[in-house]
Design a protein around this nucleic acid. Structure first.
Lengths: 114, 114
DNA sequence: GGCACTCATCCGCACCTGCGCATATGGCGA
DNA sequence: TCGCCATATGCGCAGGTGCGGATGAGTGCC
């Protein structure tokens, strides 16, 4: 099997978690320390630290010690570009489904809509 | 947590598998039937069928019966765009790492820690 | 109808993942 | 040095995933 395909699957596996997406999204705005990040996304500190370790192992984020805190930042902003493309795609799909739901709600059965 | 973030994680989870990436890549070239697909990527028929079911459930591919065969095609070619962006990103990273490896052949760097 | 062929689904297994929790590690100030 | 703070790591558990093998379901041909 193609080498890069396996690599891509690995990266995708790393991205395939809502918490980690949330973390990356937060890091896209600005570099931030673990504690504030945990508070910001409403997760426990160990949990966030674990996810950050996964992201770091995949080379998606970089860590930098600053005093007794550790500030994380995106290693490669281009990853967010790929995520953005996919997100835009999903939004298009959602609106399309929304329109279809409206249309089919208007046509068939005029049952009490709530 | 954001609704679309969870949705995106789901799609990513669907993509995060080398076999499925391989399947999508094959489907990007042309629609194809299950048997030929299995033969093409060197996997068993039940295995391919299972992966196709996952892809179909995620709305990434469409199935069409034709005689006693079933031909699958990409539901939304834009997904391959997102994959392409990511793949290009990975290739850039690989070549960069390759150059770094050449330069510092004596002093290895802790790169993709896996 | 019976048969051959293509595809889908079920089952059991080994493996991995994410979480909460407790605890270890590292740096700073008194 | 001693605690305090921020972060990292280890552990056990519940749930999910991918696979091979066997089997079920749909279709066309005789």
């Amino acid at each position: 099997m193609d080498e890069i395909t396996i690599l891509q699957a690995d990266v995708l596996k790393t991205l395939a978690n809502p918490r980690r997406l949330e973390i990356l999204h937060a890091l896209a705005t600005e570099p931030i320390e673990v504690g504030r990040l945990a508070e910001q996304i409403g997760a426990s500190q160990p949990n966030v630290s674990q996810h950050l370790a996964v992201l770091r192992a995949a080379g998606l984020v970089d860590a930098a010690r600053e005093g007794r805190e550790v500030r994380y930042r995106l290693a490669d902003p281009d990853v967010m570009v790929a995520c953005g493309v996919m997100r835009a795609l999903l939004e298009r799909r959602l609106t399309r489904l929304g329109r279809m739901a409206e249309q089919s709600a208007a046509a068939p059965v005029p049952v009490a809509t709530r």
